[in-house]
Design a protein around this nucleic acid. Structure first.
Lengths: 214, 214, 214, 214
DNA sequence: CATGAATGAGTATTCATTCAT
DNA sequence: CATGAATGAATACTCATTCAT
């Protein structure tokens, strides 16, 4: 029975991959189900065996790809071992930006929904197994650096909205500046955002931890 | 002849208003040009006399509505006369959020493109006269409070992306929390963002100026 | 499965027949695809499953009908068994003219493209099997009567252009005379055309009559 | 009053010229009245002041252009002064072919309607003054060379259909051969056609020549 | 005479979805 | 499970024609 089962997963993955390619090449609105099944070498009816409609496959694709992206950034984190929590977040931000810069298809797909891909699935059950739980990684990191934070999920939400939203504008339209020009500002804002969410710190103290005066 | 000209403007405005209504009621994708002209009481061809297609009227509508929204917030500012620059920005943010809460149609239209409506048109020439230049107001306010800021337009961009992006998620999907629950956090982040952009203050000093210890 | 396949051929033929009827009744320009599928009792989309557009079905129809017409004239030839090659060609010409007189729809369709329906497809591969190869019949007849002719296909081309072109004018507009009034002249011209292409009769002899040397 | 009148003729000519250009560039079906008036720099309504519709301007254009073409060929005739009637006809045929080769727009317009442009207008009254009466020239030439011919207009009709029809195929599609390859054959056929229409050669005799009794 | 804004019937074409095989 | 022929509602867009100015 594993054979049939494997075959089904294989078909689904083919559909995923093909849809992603086409959304990238032609855009979501201009991609038809015919396009997808034609290139995938499957019959039209088969599509409906696996997905409800075009929106269904897109949404699952966003979750899937966002999960993948953040899982990869977690890997990066494990490799680079940054010195502080702030550095960790900046590393993730830079990693995500770099990936989005390289992959316009991914960027167009995720658009400004970076946080949705994470937050929307963080507390749900029907999330596909493939999709990695970035939120768990995030809590782990918070813990590792002993950051106590009143509302970690709101901090993450804010960070993801900030990074996703500005990165999209800067990469896609180079408006108001290129992403490379914006990065230093983003870093600064991210740092201050993290501090404003951190517990042990009213704002005065926050700076002490980070850039210890003396 | 003023009469013909006035008639044309009148027609265009009717189309704008009707399209906005329908995008609100049925959503953009589900609204057809037929819907628009039917309700506007005009012929189909007339639509194409004024707009290239559905996307054209939407984009012009976003710019138009964003302009209106920010113009209204400027009015609010003149009325309330906040004590500081930070207070001004928070006032604008709250005002915008309140409007978006009340008007889901507007929210859906603007989605996460708040900054685009402002920044995208701030430096262009072909912006319709009706569209108000919020950016000029903003510079004026900066000036009034004697804020010196390295890159005012990047600060505004960051603020708009932050407000627009998070407000959309919180209002539209109540994800991860309601907008009312999120507001205090947003305020805090906005404050720290403004500070991190302000000149007279490198990060260490920043806290001193703002919340003078005793 | 033969069943599905047969069904497809059946549908295509229905579309052919219906389109022909309508082109006849209303003319090509005034016939819409809706007209065709409505009368054929099929869905609009089905049309596009078999033909690219209205022009596609027309072109295929011309080839189809021209083939049929000439195949029928070949039948006539086998029945009547004319005494000479010239008589054979006149018989075909008369047969074709008679058919076109009876069937204005066919005439309007073929217009002055009689030769195109034959020559255009004579040397191509993608010609539908239904379309009969008149050119082969023609060579056969040439052979039967032992006619040696330098360029048989140019002779056929000339004959077809002559017959098709003049018949259209005379039948459709009765300009400059009716086809019946023109027929004797056409016969004379066809005869002399055939002779001028025949080998055993070089140009020298023909000129004797006209511009007698000496 | 001449001024207003001249202005009207000027407008009409502009429309003619522009329509011809566009029919050439985009084809008749794809050219719209908007296209014509836009390029002509006139208002849409103005078109309807001069022509009934697109078909009207096309038909008048065909007559106009055919007239011009044949008038030019008459000029050629006066210049070259050919030795015989046959030579005259061949000269006209070659001249027409050369012009059509050089001007595809003209060719596409006239298509296979060369004879219509001449015959259709030869006996009518409402022919525009600009359009030259080729038929009169033709009779003149017949007379000059003392050709007696039973039905001169049928001879001309046959010649024009033959030249127009074959030239279109050969030039436009190079089917079945190029026009240059076909020319010698056309000449031969034209010669024999002229002879078969000439009086001194009745039908009885004509056959004698062909299949010489003795 | 000239204009060009307005019209709206008309048309081609697409494409998600179903269901018999 | 898989197929892909058939469907037909839905829609965008065109363009000849009119008529008030």
């Amino acid at each position: 029975m594993g054979k049939v089962e494997a075959n089904k997963i294989q078909k689904k993955n083919t559909l995923f991959a093909t849809a992603f390619e086409l959304f990238h090449e032609k855009g979501f609105a201009r991609t038809t189900i015919s396009d997808i099944v034609n290139r995938a070498g499957l019959a039209k009816g088969t599509f409906y065996l696996y997905f409800k409609d075009k929106y269904d496959i897109r949404d699952k694709l966003i979750i899937h790809k966002t999960g993948q992206l953040l899982a990869a950034s977690h890997h990066e984190l494990l490799k680079k071992k940054p010195a502080s929590f702030e550095e960790s977040i900046l590393l993730v931000a830079d990693f995500v930006i770099e990936k989005l810069k390289q992959d316009r298809g991914l960027l167009a797909l995720i658009t400004k929904n970076l946080s949705w891909g994470v937050m929307g699935t963080a507390f749900q059950k029907n999330v596909p197994e493939e999709s990695v739980r970035f939120y768990d990684y995030y809590l782990e990191i918070l813990n590792r650096y002993q950051i106590s934070c009143t509302d970690p999920e709101l901090m993450l939400f804010t960070i993801l909205e900030l990074v996703g939203s500005t990165a999209c504008s800067c990469i896609l339209y180079e408006q108001p500046v290129s992403i490379d020009a914006y990065k230093p500002y983003l870093h600064r804002v991210l740092r201050s955002t993290i501090r404003s969410f951190s517990k042990n710190q009213d704002m005065e103290e926050s700076s002490h931890n980070k850039t210890p005066a003396t």
